[in-house]
Design a binder for these strands. Structure first.
Length: 422
RNA sequence: GUGGGCGUAGCUCAGUCGGUGGAGCACCGGGUUGUGGCCCCGGAGGCCGCGGGUUCAAGUCCCGUCGCUCACCCCA
């Protein structure tokens, strides 16, 4: 048996319906905040990710699906969306025109990681990115929009965590101080953190080892060393999102794994997902557009993990499965042919209709109609073909009436409009 | 990449001391010459993940391997 590739999931009808509902609500909310949808390629030149995410990050070093195409160009299945959005922004000259530019995109990402709960090799993100404005109001707006959306999904057991990662003016100095602090007592760090001192010292703040945790309590924090501009920016963001009944916490230990982030970083976590607890994360990346060859424009964005979000909504009624308005139970070849014609007439009027094409007893066909949750069943046999009238059974009520076959489709359409239509 | 748990019917899972593999749900048919749900009767469905070993005999014990899963790591 050929199985799906490791870490890649089939979305079956029940779950696909929930995903559609998620996307529909997200689109609706994003529209209110002025975000427009864009759709981007899944494949990009490898260089794009190496330059944006960072050469020495785990994502680029060991998690990307990278291969050479038939011309020998190195291509990569995107491990995240921001780099592609920025590339498209620059390439299509979307910076032209006045004001902030806001985009969202929804789709699959690929990372070669060991699968576990809430982590897959093909996973899906709902991404929002905004370009051109450095004002803290934009940071606040984005965070408020994210929380607005999560609230509309009915999520309450979530925590919003905010931090500032500084800027090229203040972060390098801090990073230097921290590295020196850690290097002085490197032998007390766990093996992972000994490696992190060289690769990503900020990550030590995130370590789960008790001894590492104790050590970093004495370490310098970025909060203390933010430059005045970064300090003001963070304070203003916090001030702006306060007063909307939103609870949040500032956590100096929140760090991001991607190199391009500057200043505001935030994450939304839950206790209900196991180890992979972040359902959304994002932040500012003021230097990225320029670093990728575009104009020197500030930007900010976030991503929602769609699998993780969907996992939190399994109990909700989001995404009801469709059911036919009419099921045609036909007995015999002649009736099946007539039923087939009726089926098509009804569908062309926009109603959902189904019938069974195999020779099964009326009882069996009724049973199928019941399981499909059909509203009505039309029973069609030789008798009905002769008289031109057929019984129409209302499944929920159990009542039955006689309908003329001539003009049946429009009659049903009128009834649908009255009973279930808009 | 490292570690733990688990692989038995479509699904969820029993299977004792090694002795001819089961249940519930789902599916098919019947109980109604042409009427669903509830109920009753019957039926179909298994390389017990795969390979090797021990044994008179292996779903069961041992080794290997593959898969799934959870955690580390990383992150959405």
């Amino acid at each position: 048996m050929i199985q799906a590739v490791r870490g890649m999931k089939d979305l079956l009808p029940t779950e696909a319906a929930r995903w559609q509902a998620i996307e529909q609500l997200a689109r609706q909310v994003f529209q209110c905040y002025g975000f427009q949808e864009i759709r981007l390629p899944l494949l990009e030149r490898t260089e794009l990710f190496a330059r944006s995410i960072g050469e020495s990050t785990d994502i680029v070093e060991k998690e990307m699906y990278t291969f050479n195409d038939r011309h020998g160009d190195s291509l990569t299945l995107r491990p995240e969306a921001t780099a592609s959005v920025v590339r498209a922004f620059i390439e299509n000259h979307l910076d032209q025109g006045a004001g902030v530019k806001k985009y969202f995109t929804i789709g699959p990402m690929f990372r070669y990681e060991r699968p576990q709960k809430g982590r897959y090799r093909q996973f899906h993100q709902i991404n929002c990115e905004a370009f051109g404005v450095d004002a803290p109001e934009l940071d606040a707006e984005l965070i408020l929009m994210l929380m607005d959306l999560l609230e509309k999904f009915g999520l309450d057991q979530v925590r919003l965590i905010i931090n500032s990662l500084g800027c090229p003016g203040c972060r390098p100095g801090f990073k230097q101080d921290l590295t020196e602090f850690l290097a002085r007592q490197v032998e007390h760090l766990c093996p992972d953190c000994q490696r992190r001192v060289a690769t990503n010292p900020l990550r030590v703040f995130d370590c789960k080892s008790k001894t590492c945790q104790e050590m970093v309590t004495a370490a310098p924090t970025l909060q203390e060393q933010l430059c005045p501009d970064c300090r003001r920016h963070l304070d203003r963001v916090l001030e702006l999102i306060s007063g909307f009944g939103l609870s949040f916490e500032v956590n100096p230990r929140l760090v991001r794994g991607l190199d391009y982030y500057t200043r505001t970083a935030f994450e939304v976590v839950t206790t209900q997902l196991g180890a992979q607890d972040a359902i959304a994360g994002g932040g500012r990346y003021n230097g990225l557009v320029k670093a990728l060859g575009g104009p020197d424009l500030p930007a900010i964005g976030f991503a929602i993990g769609q699998e993780r979000l969907a996992a939190l909504l399994t109990d909700s009624r989001l995404g009801s499965e469709p059911h036919p308005f009419l099921f045609i139970a036909a007995l015999g070849a002649a009736a099946r042919y007539r039923g087939f014609q009726l089926l098509q007439e009804i569908r062309k009027l926009g109603l959902a209709a189904e019938m069974e094409f195999t020779d099964r007893s009326l009882k069996a066909q009724m049973s199928i109609a019941d399981r499909r949750k059909a509203t009505y069943v039309l029973i069609l046999g030789d008798r009905e073909l002769a008289t031109g009238e057929a019984p129409l059974r209302h499944m929920a009520g159990g009542g039955q009436e006689t309908m003329a076959l001539a003009g049946l489709a429009p009659a049903l359409a009128r009834r649908f409009a009255a009973e279930e239509g808009t």
